[in-house]
Amino acid sequence: MTDSPNRSVSRRSFLTSAGAVGALALAGCTEGPGSGTDNGLSGSIRISGSSTVYPVAQAVTEQFRSQNPGVEFNLSRDGSGGGFSNLFCEGNSDFNNASREISSDEEEQCSSNDIEYHEINVATDALTVIVNNDFASEYPGVTDMSIDQVRQIWRADGATTWQDVNGDWPDEAINRFGAADTSGTFDYFREAVLGEDANHTSDYSPTEQDNTILQGVQQGRYAIGYFGFSYYQDNQDAVTAVTLQAEDGDSYVEPTLENAKSGDYPLARPLFTYPKVSSLSQDHIAEFARYFVRQSANDSLIADQVGYVPKTEEGMQSELDALNEAISNA
């Protein structure tokens, strides 16, 4: 244990060199957040729930924060059901996003923990059914489906090959990619497409991540999947969207924001956020809730940036009135 006089540094220096490159670059990063009009609001807001609504929540919180630097947000993506049952109804979050309405089980769980909530409809999504590009160019017929055909593909004990759905289509097994059952997308799809008397098939790859659905359909030739429109909007070249026919004799409607807004598209679904009423008594949370509602009519934010259908001015105004009512009662 003598201190050797020839202190060689060769070995350690090589090991350090790669690591510290970025450290120098970071050496000055301690200034505060950017300036903004500070209204004196401060506090933190916990938002849980749907990964479908997450992009909307992120865009809105980001804008709100640039005007109110004192407010800190904690956002997580847990799925609509996961957020309700693990966080919101246990009293661990202030807002829960959902891509469907709150279910009766969740209502019960919330009320048993004395959690009162208020429902806000923030946007509308066009649930999009997608198929593989090569499959669509080989069999152009698959890009036009009736809701009944979609039901045959996705219900339990339904079709197993494409030929079962339509005699002209190939005798190949259907490769399905869909939402996991903690997801609000799953609940909406089951209710809107499959109806009361049919179950969702279990012969599919369930996931909470839309990315997995996109890649699965992109790579599987005879694959079909469904997810929110915003994911399709950002990846229009990767997969082909199916145009849908609500009833026999109706026309096939393309999934677009216009068609969802006009109500022509059969799978247009509302997206929600649920603030906790007791939290609304805090100024920064009430102010953020109002801001969220006002932004839900912001075309450039909701439609262009995120990819959902914004609310109309009147629709937004009535949500705002209802919210103000809830805030005054909080």
Binding site: V9, S13, T16, S17, A20, G22, A23, L24, L26
Partner: peptide, 12 residues
């Protein structure tokens, strides 16, 4: 080089 990088890491 080594002392500069180590110093950078330390200040970081």
């Amino acid at each position: 080089v080594g002392f500069t990088l180590a110093g950078g890491t330390l200040s970081f």
